[in-house]
């Protein structure tokens, strides 16, 4: 199926600003879905709050737009009740790592079979440009007018440390690579995290003098790399891909052993 058939066209154009990377990430996601010919009825897409989380409204699946940071525990309920469904979480850097940080690490620890795509634009866009736990050190934001002295999370390391069994990073500037990274995450049985670097020209870009969307995309292209020798650049690719018993499988086995398969 054409990936564009997974869109709810009557809800477009979307609310994202001109040049926002989120649409690029969403496109990569849908192409990965289309390649796998996932049945719309068998997929649930769950999101939290923020620019990225509006994505759930634009895709033609069972969709759930929840509260800030809570997409993962809502998704947990769906997945445990319907282990046969593909449950995908679309979230942002603030949603997933600040208010939702606790849920993120615990779902990773359990190795619940969710595919979590973190749209990382390094800022809170929906509320107009406050810093997030993934805003780089000494970057600017409306709540960091003198520079952000918080140190950021490296999401890949965070996910790895918490026990995620598939961890990858992609970027809007490399849509084909991003699509593959998401696709492998969809194929992986277990907690899969894909950080998707996304440009926010309106807030992050403007606050940090990154220029237009074009310039931001160019920056991404130059400063992130798929090379295995990234040097000082931001590495893209798959960083963790390991097998570990998946949570709904374990739950099912446990229930069978306790109930005698009733």
């Amino acid at each position: 199926m054409n990936y564009k058939n997974y869109l709810r066209w009557n809800k477009l154009p979307h609310i994202w600003c001109p040049g926002c990377g989120h649409g690029i990430v969403l496109g990569a996601f849908l192409r990965a879905v289309a390649q796998r010919e996932l049945n719309k009825d068998d997929v649930a897409v769950v999101s939290g709050i923020g620019c990225s989380s509006r994505a759930a409204g634009y895709v033609d699946f069972n969709t759930l737009h929840t509260a800030h940071g809570r997409a993962i525990p809502f998704a947990t309920g769906i997945k445990l009740s319907r282990p046969d469904m593909k449950v995908i979480v679309l979230t942002g850097d603030g949603d997933a790592t600040a208010i939702g940080g606790n849920h993120f690490i615990h779902a990773a620890r359990r190795n619940l079979d969710l595919t979590v795509i973190v749209f990382n634009n390094n800022i809170y866009g929906m509320t107009s440009g406050q810093f997030s736990p993934m805003t780089p050190h000494i970057n600017f934001a409306t709540t960091a007018p003198h520079g952000n002295f918080d140190y950021p999370f490296d999401l890949v390391e965070l996910a790895k440390g918490a026990g995620a069994t598939y961890v990858a990073r992609g970027a809007a500037a490399y849509p084909r690579q991003l699509e593959k990274a998401i696709g492998q995450g969809l194929d992986h049985e277990g907690f899969s995290v894909i950080e998707a670097m996304s440009q926010c020209p309106t807030y992050y870009g403007r606050k940090n003098k990154m220029g237009t969307a074009e310039q931001m995309l160019k920056w991404q292209k130059e400063n992130a790399t798929v090379s295995s020798n990234p040097g000082e650049k931001i590495p893209l690719g798959v960083f963790v891909q390991v097998e570990r018993p998946e949570y709904t499988k374990l739950t099912g086995q446990f229930i069978d052993s306790v109930s005698g398969g009733k």
Binding site: L12, P13, Q35
Partner: peptide
């Protein structure tokens, strides 16, 4: 298809013999 993949607004479609599906 770089234009299509980079279009955040799903506004571009490349038709014809494609390299990728």
């Amino acid at each position: 298809q770089l234009c299509e993949w980079h279009c955040p607004d799903f506004a571009i479609t490349i038709k014809g013999e494609k390299k990728n599906g």
